[in-house]
Amino acid sequence: MSLSLDLSAALTPLSGQAFVPPKTVAVSDTSGTSLAIDVIAVESLGVSCEELRLEIASLGAATLDTLKKWANDLCRRVTYLLENLGPLEIDAQGNQILIRSTPPDKSAGGTTKYYEVMLSSLGAGRFSLRRFRYDTTSGQRVAVPLQLTHEQLAKLVNDLVATVPSSP
């Protein structure tokens, strides 16, 4: 089975439930790739979650060039979220790449919402996705739930796995 099918099977019995604190649902495959999602609520049409994380054992020693390739492939492929994604910062010393919404959603009332992705090769190769709201009047950045349909979530997981570089 694929990670997206395994995740769907793990979420199905949780339909109609909400979790405080969020419930972590984790699945893995035989290649050393694991996926975890911090679920807030599961409904018939979608999932609300705090964070989605993917760890790829084979990318533990990935070079910065490998992470750049992953970032670029990921940003080209994931076009169905509320905003497009683009690499923002590259940390050569930390071997990390920060990706954000380009452009972010500038809502009425002085707030900006955006997705934030971190790619890293510290430990295992890591991907994390969160959504934030920045209030320009207070200067506060606050995490907000990711709202994804089941179809979007499956496509996202499949695209994450498909864009993982084959060699570090």
Rank of each mutant, 00 (worst) to 15 (best):
A26E: 14
G16F: 06
I97K: 05
A154H: 08
E83C: 15
D135K: 08
Q152W: 07
I97Y: 03
T33N: 10
A26Q: 15
E55N: 13
Y80K: 10
Q147C: 11
L129E: 00
E83F: 10
R131F: 00
V117F: 00
Q147L: 15
L88D: 12
Q93C: 08
V157I: 09
G109I: 10
P103I: 11
G16E: 04
Q140V: 15
T137P: 09
L7W: 11
A71D: 00
V42H: 06
E116D: 05
L64M: 12
A162V: 13
T112K: 11
D38G: 04
R53M: 09
A9V: 14
A162G: 13
R77I: 07
S31M: 04
P87I: 08
T111M: 00
P104C: 08
N95C: 15
S28Y: 03
G16D: 03
Y134R: 12
R131S: 04
G123C: 07
L153E: 07
G110M: 09
R133S: 13
T66R: 06
T66P: 02
D65L: 12
L74V: 05
A9E: 15
A92V: 14
S8C: 05
T112G: 06
D135N: 14
G46V: 03
E51N: 01
S31Y: 04
L82W: 10
R130A: 08
A57D: 12
G60C: 07
L64S: 06
L98V: 03
T102K: 07
L11H: 05
R131N: 01
T112F: 06
V161M: 12
I37F: 01
I37V: 11
V157H: 04
L59Y: 02
L148A: 03
V27Y: 01
R126Y: 11
P22D: 02
S120W: 01
D105I: 02
D73C: 03
I99A: 03
L64Y: 03
G139F: 14
R100N: 13
G110A: 10
T112D: 10
S34H: 10
E151W: 10
N84H: 15
V47G: 01
P168F: 11
A154E: 14
V39P: 01
G109Q: 07
L7Y: 11
T30C: 04
A71I: 03
Q96R: 14
I37Q: 01
G60N: 09
D29H: 08
E51F: 00
R76Q: 15
E50A: 07
T63M: 06
